[in-house]
Every structure is written in structure tokens, then in C-alpha cells.
Design a protein around this nucleic acid. Structure first.
Ligand SMILES: Cc1cc2nc3c(=O)[nH]c(=O)nc-3n(C[C@H](O)[C@H](O)[C@H](O)COP(=O)(O)OP(=O)(O)OC[C@H]3O[C@@H](n4cnc5c(N)ncnc54)[C@H](O)[C@@H]3O)c2cc1C
Length: 480
DNA sequence: AGACTCTTCAT
DNA sequence: TGAAGAGTC
């Protein structure tokens, strides 16, 4: 008798726990199942995927291959330059192995949706069915709507509705599928590296901060829930507490899909059930809410995928395109210690603390008045957790071009932010060795010195607010 | 998820 | 002299 053969196309869901597409493909206990992953270097280049993110993903795949093997599910690899080659590559794969159904979890970005539509069509012409599942968000985009049936553009009411939906029923995590009885292929080799995507981060930091795979993700979650969750609200704004579980550092695992947002929420809800609610738990649940929120916004307003501002009236703001100033920001040579420490953290570790992402993004877009899209791109090129919706959301928040963004007149002062959130200068000293010997408060704004290698502040903050106001003050109000 | 200035009122 | 609150952007 012929057993059914199903394919799971893995993308941003590199796990066997709580994976909707994988579970669907395995629902038929007798079906033989294979997974496939597509390497698309030219597309990645166009999407500014960071080398360290590719490296992380390849390492994740190696761990995943082992756990899939336990289920008697091979992991296949296809490679095409960009998305346009995928319909053909998948069709041929299905033909070769007589696969009749392909499952995947939806990615909501514009290019990814177009890619999937083309794949569906190509497969249909070969008699192969294509099933795309909602999986990435804790609550499915399009199902959290305002009373008049529109997507929320403001977080607070969104969150109220979103949370009510989650709390209405228990979160049910999908189990690991049972082992297959039949196997129709062997796993392909997973390349150790992809040309053009070298990680900019040293291997010792990579190994200590970013162990890859599902198990590593679950360990990170467990450690954070145990040590950080309760006091998250008090610790989350202090970058120096990162190594003490001040924040979860789960973002790369969520971006690669080594862990699901549902698994994270489930852990938080369980903790709340056992130990009672704290501000910390509620705040962290809220952060997972932001992740869902920005994905929902992207579905409701796809223009944010296309370098366009959410607030259309800000489309013609004459942002500066000054290469030299931009380069100093990229290099962490602005002369503002906290900004520079943050940018160097990004380059040294592939990650940056949330408070600092806001500080450096606000500095680039407001103090330097440089185009937020330049910063968005640079972040994508260096972040291990680079994610279009969260990154775009964060940049448009900072630039005041987004939905529910920072009001244009509410500009961070990087020196005050430094005094408040790195009071002892511990974080600055960790990443800016030139300032290592400054032990007192002056580290937030070092006195200019001819002997110092550290640069003087690159901008006179007294003119910053006037410039921003002059461009934002008289914007027409457009809606769409 | 701010910063700044000005006023008031208690030392 | 400065803490606290209000108003402004
Ligand atoms: C300018 C800017 C750019 C950003 N770019 C990205 C990005 O490319 N990828 C990314 O995952 N996050 C991005 N963020 C959001 C946030 O900074 C990171 O998710 C967070 O710092 C990751 O650290 P963590 O896992 O320890 O977070 P935690 O504080 O432990 O939060 C848990 C999880 O909640 C989610 N989350 C938290 N805050 C946000 C947020 N503001 N928006 C969306 N999701 C959030 C993340 O998935 C995170 O892993 C950006 C923020 C800003 C201001």
C-alpha cells in the first residue's frame, strides 16, 4: 500500500514543538513526512539579512536536523538565488518524491506572501496541494479588530482585546509529532556557511550568547522565567543587567522560530498561575503583545514593508542623507557615550538592548535628522534577531512616522538617558574602552581632552529640537 | 517609552 | 535653594 507523502516547508519556524504546519503534515499518523528549507542568498542580500542571523539559522538547522531525525523526518535543503526560483525547485522536489501535499506556516511580509502565492499556483498545476497555516502570532492577524472591524493602529486598545482573546481559552501547545513509520529520503548536508554572509561577531560571543536550537531556546526561557520575569518591570530598562536575566534575550530564537510566542506566553501564564501576578509578568506579556501588534499592523498596512511611512503625511520630510554623519553613528563614534556603547554592542554581539535601540534610533532620526530607513537597514544588516515588522515598527516609532509613535517633540536627551539607565556607567565602560578609566558621573558627558582618543560630541543638541519641530510642525493631516 | 521652562511654596 | 507641579513642544 502507498503511504501518503507530505512536505513541510520550514522558514521562520525552526522547531518541532508547537509547530502548526508540522503538526498538520503529521496528523495522518501513517504519512511519511519530510521537511525542506530554502537557501536564497540573493533574496537575503536584498532583505539585508545579517551574516550573524544566517549563521544562527544554519546552526539552528543543524540542531533541528538531529531532532527531526529522531522522528524519522529528513531535512532537505534547496538553494535558489531568490524567491523566484522556489516554485520550480519545490515542484521538482515534489515530483521526485511523489509528494502530494506541502504545508508551511505563513510569513506575513509582502514579498514572502507573493512568493507563497506563486508556489501555490505552481504546485497546483502539478496536482500538489499547498496548505499555509497561521502560526507566527499568538493571536492570528485579522482576528483582533476594532469595533468597526478595522485593524488597530494604537497599541493599548489592541493589547486589551488581544489579551482578552488569549485569556478566554487556555493556550494549547501542539505536541511534538510522533515518529514516522516510513521514510522516503535522507537528510541533505547543511552548509557550514553561505558565501557573502559571514558573521561579524567573534565566535566566543556567538557561542556564549547564542547557542542555537530549540533546546537552547527553552533553556533561555526557563532561566529568564526563573530569574528575571518577576522583576522584569524594574530591570528591563537597565542594559547592564542583561546578563542577569534583566531581559530574556529570546528575540533571535523567536525570529528564527526556535520557540513560539505561544510557548513564551504559556510559560508566563503558568508562572502567574503558580506565583500570582506581578507587574513584571504583566509587562513581559505586554512585550510579546508588541511583537504580535507589529505583525498585525504589517498585515493591515502592507506599505510598511515597502519603505513607506505609516503616517503618510510624513512621507516628504526632507531627512538628511549625510554619509559622514551616518558613518560615525554606525561606528559608535558620535561622542555621546551611551549611543556609542550601544552601537558597539550591536557590532560586537549582533544584538542591542531595547532601551538602547530606542536611544540610538532617536539619536539618528532626531539629533542627526538622518533618514530612519538608513538606520532600519543598518540594524537589519547587523542584528541576529532582525525582523521586518519589529524593526520597522521600532524605527517608525522613533522617527515619529509610525502608528502610535513617539510624538515628534518628545526627543530623548542621550546624556540624561545615560544618567538614568546606566547610572554607574558600567555598561558604557564595558563597550567603550577609551572611557574605562572614568569612574565618576562625568562618563555620561566626558570633558573634551586632547589626550583622549574619544571624540567630542558630533552635534550641538541646542539646535536639535528646533530642526525637528520646523519639519514636523506644519504637516497636513492625512489618513488612509 | 521625555525634556525643558516657569511658577509656586516650603525651607 | 530646590522640590513639585503645570504647560509647552
Ligand atoms: C529601533 C528598534 C528596532 C528593533 N528591531 C527589532 C528587530 O529587528 N527584531 C526584534 O525582534 N525586535 C526588535 N526591536 C524590539 C526590541 O528591541 C527587541 O525585541 C528586544 O530588545 C529583544 O530583546 P529580548 O528578547 O531580551 O526582549 P524582552 O524584553 O525579553 O521581550 C520578549 C520578546 O518580546 C518581543 N518584543 C519586545 N519588545 C518588542 C518591541 N518593541 N517590538 C516587537 N517585539 C518586541 C521580542 O520578540 C522579545 O524577544 C526593535 C526595537 C527598536 C526600538
Amino acid at each position: 500500500m502507498n503511504t501518503a507523502r507530505h512536505l513541510v516547508w520550514l522558514r521562520a519556524d525552526l522547531r518541532i514543538n508547537d509547530n502548526t504546519a508540522l503538526a498538520a503534515a503529521c496528523a495522518d499518523k501513517d504519512a511519511a513526512v519530510a521537511c525542506v528549507y530554502a537557501i536564497t542568498p540573493v533574496q537575503w542580500q536584498q532583505h539585508d539579512v545579517a551574516g550573524i542571523r544566517v549563521d544562527f539559522e544554519l546552526r539552528t538547522l543543524r540542531a533541528l536536523e538531529k531532532s527531526l531525525d529522531q522522528l524519522s523526518i529528513p531535512l532537505l535543503i534547496i538553494q535558489t538565488d531568490d524567491f523566484s526560483g522556489i516554485p520550480d525547485a519545490l515542484s521538482r522536489l515534489c515530483e521526485k518524491h511523489q509528494i502530494t501535499a506541502v504545508h508551511c506556516n505563513i510569513q506575513y511580509e509582502v514579498n514572502e506572501l507573493a512568493r507563497d502565492a506563486a508556489v501555490k499556483q505552481a504546485l497546483a498545476s502539478k496536482g500538489v496541494t499547498f496548505h499555509s497555516h497561521h502560526d507566527q502570532c499568538a493571536v492570528t492577524p485579522g482576528t483582533v479588530l476594532t469595533n468597526d472591524g478595522r485593524f488597530y493602529s494604537v497599541f493599548t486598545p489592541f493589547k486589551r482585546n488581544w489579551l482578552a482573546r488569549l485569556e478566554a481559552g487556555a493556550i494549547r501547545l501542539l505536541p511534538i509529532p510522533i515518529r514516522r513509520r516510513h521514510r522516503f529520503a535522507e537528510s541533505d548536508n547543511i552548509p557550514a556557511a553561505i558565501k557573502g554572509f559571514d558573521s561579524h561577531v567573534t565566535s566566543d560571543i556567538t557561542l556564549s550568547w547564542w547557542p542555537a536550537g530549540e533546546e537552547a531556546a527553552l533553556e533561555r526561557l526557563t532561566s529568564f522565567v526563573e530569574h528575571g520575569l518577576k522583576r522584569y518591570d524594574e530591570q528591563r530598562d537597565f542594559p547592564e543587567l542583561t546578563d542577569n536575566d534583566g531581559v530574556s534575550r529570546l528575540s533571535p530564537y523567536l525570529a528564527a522560530g526556535s520557540i513560539s510566542a505561544r510557548q513564551c506566553l504559556n510559560a508566563a501564564f503558568n508562572y502567574r498561575h503558580q506565583h500570582g501576578s506581578t507587574k513584571g509578568v504583566e509587562q513581559w506579556i505586554s512585550e510579546i503583545g508588541w511583537r504580535d501588534f507589529y505583525k498585525h499592523v504589517m498585515v493591515g498596512w502592507p506599505r510598511v514593508c515597502k519603505h513607506r511611512p505609516f503616517r503618510l503625511e510624513t512621507a516628504h520630510i526632507p531627512w538628511r542623507h549625510d554619509e559622514n554623519d551616518f558613518q560615525r553613528w554606525c561606528d559608535g563614534q558620535t561622542g555621546f557615550p551611551l549611543v556609542d556603547a550601544a552601537m558597539r554592542q550591536l557590532r560586537q554581539t549582533g544584538w542591542m538592548h531595547n532601551r538602547l535601540r530606542m536611544v540610538v534610533a532617536m539619536f539618528l532620526t532626531k539629533d542627526l535628522f538622518i533618514d530612519w530607513r538608513w538606520g532600519e537597514k543598518f540594524f537589519m544588516q547587523h542584528l541576529i534577531d532582525g525582523d521586518l515588522s519589529a524593526n520597522n515598527g521600532g524605527w517608525q516609532w522613533s522617527a515619529s512616522t509610525g502608528n502610535d509613535a513617539a510624538p515628534y517633540f518628545r526627543i530623548f536627551n542621550p546624556v540624561l538617558q545615560s544618567e538614568r539607565f546606566d547610572p554607574k556607567g558600567n555598561f558604557i565602560r564595558e563597550y567603550v574602552p577609551e572611557l574605562q578609566d572614568i569612574r565618576d558621573k562625568s562618563i555620561h558627558q566626558p570633558k573634551p581632552s586632547l589626550l583622549s582618543l574619544y571624540p567630542e560630541p558630533m552635534v550641538d543638541r541646542r539646535m536639535v529640537k528646533d530642526r525637528v519641530l520646523s519639519h514636523f510642525r506644519n504637516l497636513p493631516s492625512l489618513t488612509a
